[in-house]
Design a protein around this nucleic acid. Structure first.
Lengths: 342, 342
DNA sequence: ATGAAAGCGCTAACAC
DNA sequence: GTGTTAGCGCTTTCAT
C-alpha cells in the first residue's frame, strides 16, 4: 500500500543549497526576494531552484513566520441561495482578485446554521488564517459577534446592525446617501407622489435606504412605503399594492434593481407608461438585471467588486498594524446612473 | 502577504505538559484522541488544555504529518457566472458539507484565465492542500492537464474530455443513460417524432446526452437535433426553430431544465398544448427551474449535491492510498421524474 | 555579503 | 503506558 502518494519527496532548501554550492540561508534570501545577495549568487540559486523544481514548503515557513497567506471568507447561508446571488458573486470576485494580488488564498467557510458556529470559532482561533472576511446579512445573526470575539482580525462586508459585531470594521456603500440621491432626482423631475419599495427590515442596507428616502421626503404619506424582500416578485407585488393604495402615484424608488424590475413588470401589465406616468429608480446597477429591463432602468450604482477589494485592502492594512493611520471602516460612494426609466 | 500583528503568544504543547505535569508526548497523544493513555492522565491533560486555552498549532502539525486538512476547489470561470449557476452552487454545497464531515477546509482557487495557471500550479505543488477538486467544463481548457500534472491528488466533477486530464478520476452522472431513459419514455408514450435540444458541444455532459438520444432513436432525422447553450433563451429559440423545421413534431427532449423551460415558453406562445400536442422532458431536475414551470416538467433527475459529496469521498479514499479496492471514477445513477409535461 | 546555528511547535520512533 | 529524542523545512539572528 503506497503511503500518502505525494510522489517522490520534494527538494528542500537544503537540496537547493547543495546544488548551488551555497548555504541554506542564502537560498532562503534569494527565494524571498534576494535582497542583499550578490547577483552572481542570486543567479546560481535561481538556476538551482529551476533545475530541481523547488517549491517552498508552506507549513515550515508559516511555522516560523506565523503568517499563513490565507484569509477566511465566511459565508452564512441564512435561508437560501446566498451563493448564487449575483451581488454576492461580484463581491467575492473582488475579494478573490485582491487576495491574489496580495499573494493570499481564500479559505471558504460555509456556515449553514448555529451548529457550525463552534467549528468556525475553532478554525479562526486555530491559526490557519491571517484574518477573516464576513458579510453582515441579518440582524438576528450571532455570527458577527462570534467573529469579533475570535483571535483574528476581521472585516465585514456591509454595515453590521448596531450592537452586534461592534468593534469590527466594515466596508459598505453609502446606502443612505444613494437613496437620497435617487429620491432627490425623482423630486427634481417634478414628481409629487414618490413611493418607496423597501427591502427587508433586518438588513442594514434596506434600513439605510429607507432612511435616505425619509431624509428627502420629510413626513411622507405612510401608505407610500411598501415592504418587499429584495426579490423580483416582491417588487411586482409591492408595486401593485402601491397603485391600489395611491393611484395618484407618479414615481417609485425601489430598494434594489430586482424589485424595480418587478415593479416595471406590474406597470406594464397595468398599461402605465414609464417614465411618463410613473418614474422608476432602482438601486445596485446590477448588470444581470439592468441589462434587459424595459425601459432601461435608472438606478443608483454601487461598485460591488470594488467593495470586495476594499475589504481585503482594509484587512491587509489591519494585519500590518497600520490601523493608526487608517480609518476603521470604509463607506464607498454611490452614483446615480440616469437611463430611461426616470 | 501581511506581516503578523504580534498577539500574546499562545500556549504550546510544552506549556500544557508542564501545567499537567506530564511529557509533551502524552499531551500530544491526548490531544489526538488519547488512545493508550490512562484515564487519570487524560483528565489531567484535558484540564490543562482547558485552563490554558490551548489550541494546536496547525503549521507545526502539518510540517510533520504532511497533512493539511484542506482541499483546493478549483473554479474556472470560462466566460461568466459559473459561480452563480445553481448547478454549481449545489455541487459546491455538497463538497463543503462532506469536507466538513472529514474535518477539512475548502480553499477556493478562482481561475480567471490562462494567466492564473502558473499560480494554481504553484499552489497545488506548494504543500498547502491535501488534494484538489475541479470541474471539467470546457474541452478547450488546459486546466485539467495542469492539475493532473501537479503533485497532489485530484478528482474532477464531470467527465473530462478524452485526451485532457487523462488519468484523473471523476464523478459524473450517467448522462447517456439518463438521456436514453428520457427518450425511451417519450417513445413509450407513442411519440413518433422526437426532437432534441442539445447543450454546447464542448461539454461532455451535452455530448453524452446527445449520444443517449441517438442510442434510442437510431438514425433520426438530423433536422430534429437543434443546438442550444444551456440557457433558457437558447431553449426557446431552438424550440421555435424545430417547430418551423418540423411542424409534425410531437415530443422534445431538452438537454437541461433551463432549455426545457424556454421550450415550454415558446410552445405556449404558439398555442401548442403540453403534453397533448408536444411532450417535453428536461434534464437535471433543478429545483429553481422545475418549481415554477407550467405544466410541471418531467425531467431526468441527478443528485448534484450527492455528486459533490462523492467527489470528496473519492478524494479522501485516494489520499488514504486505498485506490486498490476503489474504482477510479464514479458514475451516478439518474432517474426519470414523471410530472405533467410528458 | 555569506554562513553557522538556533529554534518555530509538533509528531512519531524508540526506549524504558 | 509514558518519556526521551530526533527531526519536519524553513527563517533569522549572530558571527565572520
Amino acid at each position: 500500500m503506497p503511503e500518502q502518494t505525494t510522489g517522490a519527496s520534494r527538494p528542500t532548501l537544503e537540496a537547493v543549497a547543495a546544488h548551488a554550492g551555497v548555504s541554506r540561508a542564502t537560498v532562503s534570501r534569494v527565494v524571498n526576494g534576494g535582497a542583499g545577495v550578490r547577483q552572481h549568487l542570486v543567479d546560481k540559486v535561481r538556476k538551482a531552484v529551476e533545475d530541481l523544481g523547488y517549491v517552498p514548503n508552506h507549513a515550515a515557513r508559516s511555522l516560523v513566520t506565523r503568517r499563513h497567506g490565507a484569509v477566511a471568507v465566511i459565508i452564512a447561508e441564512p435561508e437560501f441561495r446566498v451563493f448564487s446571488d449575483p451581488f454576492f458573486e461580484q463581491q467575492v470576485r473582488g475579494i478573490s482578485r485582491e487576495l491574489t494580488a496580495h499573494d493570499s488564498q481564500m479559505v471558504l467557510l460555509w456556515v449553514e446554521g448555529v451548529g457550525d458556529h463552534q467549528r468556525i470559532a475553532r478554525y479562526l482561533d486555530g491559526g490557519h488564517v491571517d484574518g477573516a472576511l464576513a458579510f453582515s446579512l441579518h440582524s438576528d445573526d450571532r455570527l458577527p459577534a462570534l467573529i469579533a470575539r475570535s483571535s483574528v482580525q476581521a472585516v465585514f462586508g456591509g454595515r453590521p446592525p448596531v450592537g452586534s459585531g461592534l468593534s469590527v470594521p466594515f466596508v459598505d456603500c453609502d446606502n443612505r446617501g444613494g437613496a437620497r440621491e435617487a429620491v432627490r432626482h425623482l423630486v427634481s423631475l417634478g414628481r409629487r407622489c414618490v413611493a418607496h419599495i423597501a427591502g427587508p427590515r433586518d438588513q442594514t442596507s434596506a434600513l439605510d435606504r429607507i432612511a435616505g428616502y425619509h431624509d428627502v421626503l420629510v413626513d411622507p404619506d405612510p401608505a407610500l412605503l411598501c415592504q418587499g424582500d429584495f426579490t423580483r416578485e416582491s417588487g411586482a407585488r409591492a408595486m401593485a399594492e402601491l397603485l391600489d393604495r395611491r393611484p395618484e402615484l407618479d414615481a417609485v424608488f425601489a430598494a434594489n434593481d430586482l424589485m424595480a424590475a418587478g415593479a416595471l413588470h406590474t406597470l406594464r401589465e397595468r398599461r402605465l407608461r414609464v417614465p411618463e406616468d410613473i418614474a422608476v429608480v432602482g438601486f445596485d446597477d446590477m448588470d444581470s438585471v439592468v441589462r434587459d429591463t424595459e425601459p432601461a432602468l435608472t438606478t443608483v450604482r454601487q461598485d460591488i467588486e470594488g467593495m470586495g477589494r476594499l475589504m481585503v485592502k482594509l484587512l491587509m492594512r489591519l494585519l500590518q498594524g497600520r490601523s493608526d493611520a487608517a480609518p476603521a471602516s470604509v463607506i464607498t460612494q454611490t452614483s446615480l446612473v440616469r437611463r430611461a426609466s426616470a
